[in-house]
Computed example of a mutant assay.
Amino acid sequence: MKIDLSEQSIDALADVISGGSANESAPSIGLYRQAWRLEAWFKAFGIHFGSQQESRLPATKTAIREAIFIDNEILLKRVIEAAVDPRDFINDPDRHNAVVEHLNRHLIYDGYKLEPMGRKMRLIELAETGPAPGELSAMAAGIDFDTAGRDLDRALRAASTDPEIAVTAACAVVESVCRSILVELKIDFPAKQDISSLYKAIREPLGLDPTKEGLAPEIVNDVRAVLSGLVTSIQGIGSLRTHAGGAHGKERGFRRIDPRIAKLAIHSASAIALFIIETWQLRYPGRTLPLTPPDE
């Protein structure tokens, strides 16, 4: 994973590693490190820190650019992850959260994001997002519906490297939206809580019947055909998850899903979830969805 940081991200990373300029009146975003500590910090990565020629903050930026110039795919990743090592913030976990958020606000524009993995932080590469997933991510963030956003991020990241997990996560996107609607409307979950049953349970409350929407007679059949295709897509995504998803163990010699099919499932699930959320907002304006639907 070759990492190429923008100047804005370099500035943000330098602030975190060095603790900012000593002359700043505002509290530093990172941990303040004296020049000799910064020299030792970068030396651990084999990076020169020229504090004699430059003051602390400019020298930190120069060292980061050196790491980029070395063009080692692992080196810069290690530097970024070390900058947010939770062990350095044991006595101040709130500052650690602020540091991660500060860096992520910049890194996301370079196509990267810091995420917790066990007891450590890991830098991950964000997958390219098409129109439907991109719009769904934006809507999920806008309505503070983090469950769908997390499932979608997981699906996009895994599409090429672990398509079975991607299909499972894509299915979970639609399931999360349906479950949240049922929770908000205080409707009992269906006995079988697969994607098809959950969607069937919300069709009536959302009025997903073209004959009830006051449509012009000449397009009723057309809309019915589109909604029928929606049901077919939902059934297909559910079946793909059951037969080839990452939720179950696979026998020896199992043939993996083509990443193209996984991406098709992601884009289809995103379009379906987006349609359901927009229908919800139209039918129940002003009502929010629960952030994290229960698993039972």
Rank of each mutant, 00 (worst) to 15 (best):
I80A: 06
L76C: 07
R65S: 08
N72G: 14
D85V: 07
E66S: 14
P58E: 01
L38K: 03
G50N: 14
E54V: 05
E39W: 04
R56H: 05
W41F: 09
G50V: 11
Q52W: 05
S55I: 08
V84I: 14
D85Y: 06
L38P: 04
F42E: 06
F45C: 15
W41V: 02
A44L: 13
L31S: 10
W41E: 07
Y32I: 04
T62D: 08
S51V: 02
A26M: 08
I70S: 12
A44W: 12
L75M: 02
D71Q: 14
S25T: 14
I80C: 11
I80S: 07
I64G: 05
E39M: 01
I74W: 00
R56K: 14
W36A: 00
P58H: 02
E24M: 03
K61T: 03
T60N: 05
S55N: 12
F42W: 11
L76P: 03
R56L: 08
N23V: 15
P58Q: 00
R33D: 01
I64E: 11
I68Y: 07
D71R: 13
Q52S: 04
Q53R: 13
R87V: 14
Q34H: 00
F45E: 13
L76V: 04
G30P: 02
F49V: 08
S25H: 11
R65K: 15
